[in-house]
């Protein structure tokens, strides 16, 4: 049995989620609490991948990162680095598709606690960076973690945009969803079934964990308020 699709899926989803986490947390912290003209338009753009068909995202990425696309050409000329039809293409597709989930959770998380805690620290002379790491981040952590898990699960399941930008290269871009599609196409039903079970287990444990964990958190908060 070839376990490559599993390892590749974990690698692609892992790197994509890491990128999405950093960018999502920073952008959510900057944007979510400020009021400025065009805010809702900007947020709508950031959340757009959530409602667009993955093929539209794939088309857009192909346009940007293709051999004749402007980012793709620039990367090739300056770094000799190719995104299309490689596993980095799969990472980018997963990251774009899962970004809204991270952004949404992070955005909610940063609005969910009393901001005076931060202001208090600032008036006592703590630097902005210190406040972010010692106060904002720990307070927002439950929401951020939920976003992280959702983004990871969504990355694992990404198919449409990935197929368009990364293509099907066995051993390089055949993540579990692609392996399932091509196994069915080639009539290898048992192999497809096996991967279906694997992805079901991964997805189910992510959702189950999120569910039980958030319930525990709610109970924790309730008990705290009582005492």
């Amino acid at each position: 049995m070839n376990v490559e699709p599993l390892l590749l899926s974990l690698k692609v989803a892992g790197i994509a989620t890491f990128m999405v986490f950093i960018i999502g947390v920073i952008s959510a912290r900057i944007i979510s609490r400020k009021l400025f003209p065009g805010k809702s338009i900007l947020e709508s753009i950031l959340l757009l991948p959530l409602v667009l068909p993955p093929t539209v995202i794939g088309f857009g990425l192909l346009y940007l990162f293709g051999k004749n696309g402007w980012i793709g050409q620039w990367l090739m000329d300056w770094f000799g680095f190719q995104v299309i039809f490689s596993w980095t293409g799969a990472v980018i597709a997963s990251a774009v598709v899962s970004f809204p989930l991270m952004y949404q959770s992070a955005s909610a998380a940063f609005q969910n606690y009393d901001q005076n805690l931060e202001n208090a620290a600032l008036t006592m002379g703590a630097s902005k960076l210190k406040v972010f790491f010692t106060i904002s981040l720990p307070l927002a952590w439950p929401g951020l973690l939920a976003g992280l898990v959702m983004a990871f699960a969504r990355s694992l399941g990404e198919f449409g945009a990935t197929l368009m930008i990364a293509g099907y290269i066995p051993g390089e871009t055949d993540t579990i969803p692609l392996a399932i599609y091509f196994a069915v196409e080639s009539g290898r039903m048992e192999e497809a079934l096996l991967w279906v079970v694997v992805i079901l287990c991964l997805g189910f444990s992510a959702v189950l964990w999120l569910n039980t964990w958030s319930r525990r958190k709610i109970n924790f908060v309730r008990n705290h308020k009582k005492s």
Partner: peptide, 8 residues
């Protein structure tokens, strides 16, 4: 083989 992209 390493440089191949498979089409459906």
């Amino acid at each position: 083989e390493d440089q191949m992209v498979f089409g459906s």
